[in-house]
């Protein structure tokens, strides 16, 4: 069954870029795909085991969708299709090659964000695609999560997590280190683990192998 081939391709893709689908709402586009309800249910379940959460289904007949399946969506914004050259060579005309994944990710062009207000206690700033620059402080009890690096022109009193999409080269910079927790690519340090002499200093934080390094910057 072509869908199985497509799943193999998907696994290959996922193996190459860890966290590609992590925390992303995925829309399944079924246009041009001839699939029955049971097969669809099976596909959604198989995707779920791969941690791909289907939030909506596009291009499906109304009769195909049941209450236990994700709801129908229309007018999703197409991004670049997942490239699956191998399947394109297969002979079936309406194959899984047409099963495009719409990822709600903005293009690379606007992959960094600048926030010109302080991040307040209780607020959570997520930016999975790229760098985050904050002109202001990050308060105790708040968090900043970025796929790329985090730059804070102020005090870091809350949590900062950089490189969350598997980017081990991401760094955290801040003018004043008073963090509750810092993390890069899943490796973390809590406030107690931080060198006391670096508290209150302007620092940069990066990953060397599996060790988080913190050093003062002038």
């Amino acid at each position: 069954m072509p869908v199985d081939d497509w799943l193999v391709q998907l696994d290959n893709l996922a193996a190459r870029s860890a966290g590609f689908f992590l925390r992303k709402p995925i829309v399944l586009d079924l246009t041009n795909l001839d699939i029955g309800q049971d097969e669809l249910r099976d596909l959604v379940a198989k995707l779920a085991t791969r941690k791909v959460r289907i939030m909506g289904i596009e291009g499906a007949k109304a009769s195909l969708l049941a209450p236990d399946l994700p709801p129908a969506l229309t007018d999703g914004k197409g991004t670049s299709d997942v490239e699956i050259p191998a399947v394109e060579e297969s002979s079936a005309p309406a194959t899984a090659a047409n099963l495009a994944l719409t990822v709600s990710a903005p293009s690379r062009a606007n992959s960094s964000v600048v926030v010109s207000q302080p991040v307040r206690s209780g607020q959570s700033l997520h930016h999975a695609e790229g760098d985050v620059t904050i002109v202001g402080s990050v308060a105790s009890g708040s968090e900043v999560v970025a796929g790329g690096s985090i730059h804070i022109y102020g005090a870091l009193r809350g949590r900062a997590m950089a490189g969350t999409m598997g980017n081990s080269t991401a760094r955290i910079f801040c003018r004043k280190l008073e963090a509750e927790l810092i993390a890069i690519d899943g490796f973390y340090l809590t406030a107690e683990d931080l060198e006391p002499s670096l508290r209150g200093k302007a620092v940069q934080i990066w990953l060397e192998g599996e060790t988080i390094k913190v050093a003062a910057v002038i």
Binding site: Q117, R120, S121, G122, Q123, A139, S140, G141, S142
Partner: peptide
């Protein structure tokens, strides 16, 4: 101070 910080976030 922290509670006030939270409230300012809500005000915004």
């Amino acid at each position: 101070v922290r509670d006030s910080d939270r409230i300012i976030g809500l005000l915004d």
